[in-house]
Design a protein around this nucleic acid. Sequence first.
DNA 1: TTTCGCGTTGATGGC
DNA 2: CGCCATCAACGCGAA
Length: 552
Amino acid sequence: MLYVLEPAATTAPHTGAVRLRFLLESLTALDGELRARGSSLHVARVADGADVAAEVAAAAARCGATTLVYEDDDSPAGRQRDAAVGAAAAAAGLAVVTRSGHTLYPPALLLDAAGGVAPRTMAAFTSLVDRVGPPRPPLPTVGDDLPPPPPPPPPLGDGEAVADGAVPSLGALGWDAAAAAGLRVRGGEAAALQRMEAFLGRRGGAVVRAFEKPKTSMVAWRTPDTTVLSPYLAAGVLSPRTFYARLREVEAAGNGRHTRPPVSLVGQLLWREHFHLLAGSVPHFGRMAGNPLCRQIPWDDPSTDAAAAARHAAWATARTGYPAVDACMAQLRKEGWVHHLGRHLLACFATRGDLWLSWEAGAATFEELLLDWDPALNAGNWMWLSASAFFNSYFRVYGPVTWMRKVDPEGKFIRHYLPALARLPTAYIYEPWKAPAGVQAAAGVRIGDGGDYPAPIVDHAVVSKVNIDRMAKAFRSGAAAEKGGNKAPAVKVGGVGGWGGGANAKPAAATGAPSRGGRSAKAKADAAPVKTEESGGAGGLRTRSGRVSKKR
DNA sequence: TTTCGCGTTGATGGC
DNA sequence: CGCCATCAACGCGAA
């Protein structure tokens, strides 16, 4: 099995140390599983700008493979690359087999059932899924009947390639291991299944059956209130169909007494499914310009506006001066993970609530930092929180002082993630700039310029009102545009991609990023000619830039 | 016993 | 999966 590490998967700003460590651990675990079955994983690195498709095809042919197997990537950029790989492989005389397994359903199946137009609301999506019926059950785990590994293929790319195919270390990829020390989730499928079963078994399944996402706690950092399976789902380490099937079993044990979508855990998988379907079918889903789903709002752009860049930097480095916001960012930077509701606070504050930054800028920061980064979910959720799409109540603004205080009156979460503030009296923990000098001194902290923690970079009471007015204006002009007959076109399905260009990231000019969004492949291959079918549950590994293929 | 002052609670509506 | 101002209703102690 071959896994290709593209530069964007191993370097900032697209990838941070924490997620890279998780990926490398998962690759190591996959290699171990393959070796236990008499095969192995070969990791190859390619240089920036290399023609990966041609090199993969050439390497496969040179080591005697007859079939190239990989999993579909449902993102536009991924589909473009898949097409290139498929074409290059076919030209090299290889049979090509692709599978759909990253989502519960093959996207084309849902789009067909929906008449070619992806639903735009969760309610409509849920009824679509009800009509289609449950997803296929996961396939069994591969056994020990894998063919022996072929001779190692020649290295891909230039001298950067890892000749022996071993999973590289963080250090070998140019990272300081200390930067990834905050990782709290172990990589690999065995760890994923163990975490999944541990959660499913909480109070005999009662926790699953009573699960309501909005009611989970964002300040339970020692033992998160949610599953924290998203990193595994995002990387392709855990099959969504495996998770779904087990959830249904645990729900069934309650004799019909369990929560339901959208708040249940199955509902969380449907959110994921919904955003994936939209990301694969709405033009430019990952950005504002040219995205028919996204309200056009005159955000400040940090790439062209120095003041906006300063605000963005303060937000991204946990220096806004609002402890609730900064504690969330501190957790994200350290661990690569924050609770869903913490992400709400961060995203609302960065966009319509306070800083008025483009949601694309915030999404780019999350792309680097999130362990569970997924282009479809990231864009969908940033559009949601910025009230650019899906969500219209732009006046519901999270208060950076009031909101978290309701669930954590003593500020334990803040004290843990912002240790400089740990000794402040509870009265000031959410508003440290109000603490008198004597109180600050007693707490061993100095707030403000040159101190240990900054004063607020904006006055929430003032800017939130200004921003609500701006949002109201943007909503009015959006409504006017729609009345003027400028409606967004229906979202058409289609194999034919008219929207090729890198729809999942910021505009290419802003990042210089190569297209990414990769997938992996399954170990179990039929030697069939080009065809597509669903792949299954166990054992795969998928990343945005990885590609695994089986040689025989 | 009635009335007043004052603080708390909950419903409501606007942004 | 907001926040706040407003107001009515209420509880309670004091006069």
